[in-house]
């Protein structure tokens, strides 16, 4: 099995774990983890796609992945902040509706 295929398999596995976690978990922190795992799966895939054919890796996907990681970090930080605020206001760290609230 080529190393590229291995990477693709790993990516698919990670993506599956992420999707599963996103659907199953109710705590927001877990959902956030799941999304990060999905993101990492995509990064792995993109790095694998840039695997060197002639010994010189393509720089573009590397740059894209780096940027992607930066964005993932900031989005995660933002989500954490939002989660903390949500907990402060509603006392919940999940998205289950409060049945008493009416909109």
């Amino acid at each position: 099995m080529s190393s590229t295929a291995l990477y693709v398999l790993v990516a698919a596995g990670l993506f599956g774990i992420g999707v599963y976690g996103l659907i199953i978990a109710s705590h927001l922190l877990r959902k956030l983890f799941a999304i990060n795992i999905m993101g990492n799966a995509i990064f792995v895939l993109m790095v694998a796609a840039s695997a060197p054919l002639d010994g010189r890796p393509d720089a573009v996907p590397q740059a894209l992945v780096l940027t992607g990681i930066v964005i993932a970090v900031s989005a995660t930080a933002f989500a954490l902040a939002l989660m903390v605020q949500l907990y402060r206001v509603t006392g919940q760290a999940s998205l289950e509706e409060d049945p008493t609230e009416d909109d």
Partner: peptide, 10 residues
């Protein structure tokens, strides 16, 4: 609003 924002974010 926060709950809607969080759902939108995910």
């Amino acid at each position: 609003a926060l709950r809607a924002a969080m759902r939108y974010l995910l």
